[in-house]
């Protein structure tokens, strides 16, 4: 009798722990899903671990940018959670000079490549590292 209950409690605890970790993961990672821009999507959207990048080395303005005369003149105080203007897709979309797909690829890959060359901790460099089939 008692071992049965123990098992059930363990199972419930395990299930709960899965849901809570999942919810916590949702908060610090962004699903880069833009169905209005990526009309013919060929790979699944990327879940971008924003917090890992905040903690992991690059400063905010290494990625967030607003170039004026070749200089990144972005006001860092605008980088607030929930501000739609700070998302990549605010400027990079299907009609912009650099399409959102290229913006993502250039931004992520250039940094991952640079870090690899400098033998620092780095992120994926090939398709399947970020675009995961589930």
């Amino acid at each position: 009798m008692i071992p049965k209950y123990n098992l059930m409690i363990l199972l419930i605890a395990a299930l709960l722990s899965i849901t809570t970790t999942d919810l916590m993961a949702q908060q610090d990672s962004l699903l880069l899903n833009h169905p209005e821009i990526f009309l013919n999507r060929q790979r699944p959207p990327v879940t971008f671990p924003h917090n890992r990048h905040v903690e992991g080395g690059p400063s905010c303005k290494d990625c967030h940018h607003q170039y004026k005369n070749g200089e990144n003149s972005l006001d860092e105080s605008t980088l607030q959670e929930g501000n739609p203007e700070i998302r990549c897709s605010a400027c990079h979309h299907s009609r912009s000079g650099i399409h959102l797909r290229e913006a993502f690829h250039y931004q992520c890959l250039s940094c991952h490549k640079k870090n690899e060359k400098e033998r620092k901790k780095t992120g994926p460099r090939f398709c399947g590292g970020c675009h995961l089939w589930n």
């Binding site: 013919n40 060929q42 690829h105 398709c127």
Partner: peptide
């Protein structure tokens, strides 16, 4: 191949056109 062309574009800034991945 799309993946090859994206890597080419990233490395040299040029690429061929790509087939659909399927």
């Amino acid at each position: 191949l799309l993946g090859h062309n994206i890597l080419l574009d990233e490395a040299w800034g040029m690429h061929f056109w790509s087939f659909p991945e399927s």
